[in-house]
Design a protein around this nucleic acid. Sequence first.
RNA 1: GGGGGUGUAGCCGAAUGGUCUAGGCACGGGUCUUAAACACCCGGAGGCUGAUGCCUCGUGUGGGUUCGAGUCCCACCACCCCCACCA
Length: 818
Amino acid sequence: MTDADRYDPLSIEPPIAERWHDERTYSFDPDASGERLYALTMFPYPSGDLHMGHGEIFSIHDAFARYQRMQGKHVLNPIGWDSFGLPAENAARNRGADPREWTYANIDEQRRSMVRLGYSFDWDTVLHTSDPDYYRWTQWIFLELFSAGLAYRKEANVNWCPSCQTVLANEQVIDGHCERCDTEVVKKPLTQWFFKITDYADQLIEDLDKVEWPERVKLMQRNWIGRSEGANVTFEVADTGEEVVVYTTRPDTLYGATYFVFAPEHPLVQQKMADDDDFEAFVEDVSKRSEIERLSTDASSKRGHRLSFDMVNPVNGETIPAYAADYVLMDYGTGAIMAVPAHDQRDFDFARQQDLPIRVVVQPEDADALDAETMDEAHAGEGRTVNSGPYDGLPWQETKQRITADLADKGLGEAAVNYRLRDWTVSRQRSWGPPVPMIHCPSCGPVAVPDDELPVELPEDLDFAVDGSPLALHPTFSTDVVCPECGNEDATRDTDTLDTFVDSSWYFLRYLSPNDDEQPWPKQEADRWIPVDLYSGGVEHAVLHLLYARFVVKALRDLGHLDADEPFQRLINQGQVILDGAAMSKSKGNLVEPPEVYNEYGADTLRGTMLFASPPEDDIDWADVSPSGMHRWLSRVWRLTIEFLDDPDGETDGQAAEALEKAIHVAVDGATADFDAFKYNTAIAKMMTLTNELQEARRSGVGGRVVEDAIATLLQLLAPICPFITEELWTRLGRDGSVHETRWPQADPEMLVEENVELVVQVNGKVRGTVTVAAGADAAAMEAAARSEDNVARYLDDAEVAKVVTVPDRLVNFVVRD
RNA sequence: GGGGGUGUAGCCGAAUGGUCUAGGCACGGGUCUUAAACACCCGGAGGCUGAUGCCUCGUGUGGGUUCGAGUCCCACCACCCCCACCA
């Protein structure tokens, strides 16, 4: 073998990669007939070059897309960039970079890496969310939602990240910290645009049954939406009769309500306590506490203030004291609760702290009777109702239903459903995003920018050095406008931009016609393609992007722009690439970058290493994987092929040749099942096994057609994972065209049938030997063969066989008594 | 506090209730070589045996169901993820 025949990925890969890109080899052909498939991978944010996480997900995704093509599908496999967002602004502020130049330079770099790695993307449908001809339609969607009443403006206590200087949606607050920069989030009253995602809360739960997603992700969405069933109950202020509604999931415990609690910000409290300095001081104190402190569930951390009035319990007319306390939140339920300390831990903690009465109204059945004096925690569970007048003795669920019904009869309550989900705050006080397409007119209020004036473009001359929002502080952007309805010259533009998650909530629709300037997408194309057949990406978007995209699709459906209920039919999540158990990051200095791998071993090795490391959904610890091992195997495949081409002669029949021929079909059968199940790691293991058998067959003198079949089949199986080496060797093997355009090999069922099978022989469940019998042998034949095995016979000699268990083609088990 | 998941060689990981550990990594021994690298071959807990072999233990721990359990059931332990003063 000469040097020219060595496996040298660095010289064979780049020309093939460039050819695929330049010739648009993997662009979707709209005229193609036959079955279509939409394979979508989450588009990247261009914060720099691709990192290992991209290398993993795109390699998994590309194996899927290429496999489906070989299965005869016409695959749409688009790529684009989620190119609006804060990092570009930070680069501008910190380094004086132009956010546009910075962003598009990064896109170019990532694109070159994708080409180098051989990903079979459609380079004809590329989009960037920061292009005006993209965000023109993002703004259009905002206006569609606005005209349908699904986008609205209100003042609210919103999440504010002091570092990013912007509002965040609830979904972007992780344990009280900013999702992007990890700074502690504070609450701030601001007037903001919201999308009414809560209108779709029930559908967002129910339609999870329609999609094939990991159960884990569905569960996360259900938890996030947080549906709970209970009742709204009306209490009265003792002296004035003012009505206050509370929400409770346990109306059966109404008789146990011994006090009442308002959120400190509750308007009724604010009004009634307006002149009380002590109360003002209390509110001031509470508001100074950070979210993190408030999140503490420590029993002693609750803060409360006795109010100047009492409340009346509607079920028994009892007068109970009213408090304000920080453990009641203004934005869940009604901002006021009935407190049942015996059966709610938070109420219990507060009652003990304030020395408030505790009354047991649910008695657990399989435990000692609860005693309000001595109990040291609330009993939140089930039991029989006690101390509740006419309801005594009923099981708690029945009490719940009856009390709710009785209250409803008296007009004092009703069954109610509550959600944890809040409306989506979409305004951002940042400037590298699509401007909110609204105009504020002193006489008309908020007015939509007319369609023919879209897009509202970002000014080119934003100053990112300012302290605050560059767009808001731009000299003319806000004021250079008149009201479209009344012509008022004092009208101003909205200077907020839309959350990047708005950009990414519909990009899979824009891929269908990225250059159409008449419409965002042709409806008939959307109806043909949506939902996307397979969506691949990280689980970190479980309650962010994936929830928003589902909402936007449902809203657009209701507005008549498409028919689909859901954006993504099937979802696979890949794990993270970590190093020594920790996330890779620049600041930790533990980054392994893709070029380090593909510049040494080639792209095929990078891709193969990723897929062989573990099942896709598991994290890959780079410390545990071995690019050199993958490279060694690929070199072996290369060498076997080249050596065969040098010297193809050999036996084409006989035992070794037959064994190889069988091995081909076994590998095809197994690998196909694995590809269908996304188990690329075991698919590769089966290809390695075939390689081992091929090598052994060669050593035994096998050659000719059987070996060529084995090599060709191996190349086909490997093609979706390692596209370059397979393409090169396919050509060297003298085959026409591209291996990627061949049809996926089929296993011949007859070749999978064994003539003889090895039976396991057990005595009392312990393996005592094996014996070979003809496949399909009946129980008697199996037993006879098993008895004849020397070692087994030893165990049967002095024993009485009580029972013989036979499993066809698998085992014989003798159950014996001594 | 609530919910979900996972525990298999030194490591990553396979394993329709049927021979535990496919494939790889790492490691050790060998062949080739002046030598190394590469490549190729062999190895895998413990005990007995000169060896072929045979036996015992063994899938986080302890029980159970079963002819037979990594797999099913119960309890416990450890780790991971999601939600969390959500009434």
